[in-house]
């Protein structure tokens, strides 16, 4: 049974297990330092489809089917799918899983969606409301770019704080307590907005939300930074990560020794010109489901606080002069 503590933090007393997980990605992600961790890499960004929207749906299907087959779980055993992406109306997810016939809950948490879906899947399982649940998210560079920024062939210059949307998808299947990795607790974040209006500096828009959520989990669970081998933020990138360190430093806490960021891990900053790092739902999803969960399972990492971050930005409202609200949800993943 899940038990509500305080400040959005819930403890999952049955400690649900992540049965299996898989990640799929594009060529750039395959060329990055975590390339070998992906279960599927496509050399072509179109994934054999005629529109970028279809490509993203295909990408999500690939992560989903790999996760199922790795765990030896059939589609029929799943109670619910919690899925989301960056496209308007969660198009990537809805069209990606429309043929599965599995009850579907569509989520939008911008780049925090992987944590959001994992939180909900775990709570459902913890409360016996589901046997197995899938948490599934994706992003695609080309479908995000045409919706949020410019056409692919437009000649624009990216600012140094801009981040590169990851073409990737991750899927985790959560079920009853069995083998590690276990989900021990979660914090559902609140919206934090410190007035950042620059859509090319999402790291700065999201860092305060990550700070609040991580701080809440540590405080409510009476833990310190050093109780974790890794505090993994979603996609703050280089700028957002620096800001996060600074915010914790003001509290007298040094988080930099245990912190890493999915946006910093997925690309090779020397060879790939991605400016401040990776972003998008697929960034934290593929790093978590391709790399981190495997390391927790093997016991290389004992306690991980996964805090995916999202910039809840609407191009319409940003054009109206509004600032960008940030959000972050945290999941405590453990092998103990």
């Amino acid at each position: 049974m899940s038990e509500y503590l305080n400040e959005g933090t819930i403890i999952l007393t049955t400690e649900p297990s992540v049965y299996s997980y898989a990640a799929a990605g594009g060529k750039m992600e395959g060329d990055g330092p975590l390339g070998s961790c992906f279960d599927y890499i496509s050399q072509e960004s179109d994934f054999g489809e005629s529109t970028w929207e279809k490509s993203e749906s295909r990408l999500q299907q690939l992560a989903f089917s790999h996760a199922l087959s790795k765990g030896g779980i059939s589609e029929g055993e799943l109670s619910f799918i919690f899925a989301g992406d960056l496209q308007n109306q969660c198009t990537g997810s809805a069209y990606g899983i429309r043929d599965t016939g599995i009850p579907f809950i569509g989520l939008y948490g911008a780049c925090s969606t992987m944590a959001e879906s994992l939180v909900l899947a775990s709570i459902f399982v913890d409360n016996n409301a589901a046997e197995y649940c899938a948490a599934l998210t994706s992003s695609h560079f080309c479908s995000a770019e045409r919706q949020f920024r410019f056409p692919e062939t437009y000649g624009g210059q990216r600012t140094p704080t801009a981040q590169w949307t990851v073409t990737g998808s991750g899927c985790a299947i959560v079920g009853k307590h069995n083998n590690p990795p276990y989900i021990k607790g979660v914090t559902i974040g609140k919206i934090v907005d410190l007035g950042i209006k620059d859509a090319n500096n999402m790291g700065a828009a999201m860092a305060p939300a990550a700070y609040e959520t991580i701080k809440s989990y540590l405080k409510v669970q009476k833990k310190t930074v050093n109780d974790f081998d890794l505090i993994l933020t979603g996609d703050l990138g280089s700028v957002g990560s620096e800001i996060l360190y600074e915010l914790f430093r003001k509290d007298g806490v040094d988080i930099s020794t245990v912190h890493n960021d999915c946006g910093l891990m997925i690309y090779d900053f020397e060879k790939q010109d991605v400016h401040a790092g990776g972003s998008g739902c697929g960034c934290s999803a593929s790093v978590l489901c391709g790399h981190i969960l495997e390391r927790v399972k093997k016991g290389e990492l004992k306690n991980v606080l996964f805090a995916a971050t999202g910039a809840l930005m609407s191009t319409t409202v940003v054009q109206q002069g509004e600032s960008i609200p940030g959000i972050s949800h945290a999941v405590h993943i453990s092998c103990e």
């Binding site: 594009g26 179109d46 560079f141 080309c142 056409p151 692919e152 073409t167 010109d273």
Partner: peptide
């Protein structure tokens, strides 16, 4: 054919 910036990286 439609463009693809990821190819340039």
């Amino acid at each position: 054919k439609r463009g693809d910036k990821t190819k340039q990286m």
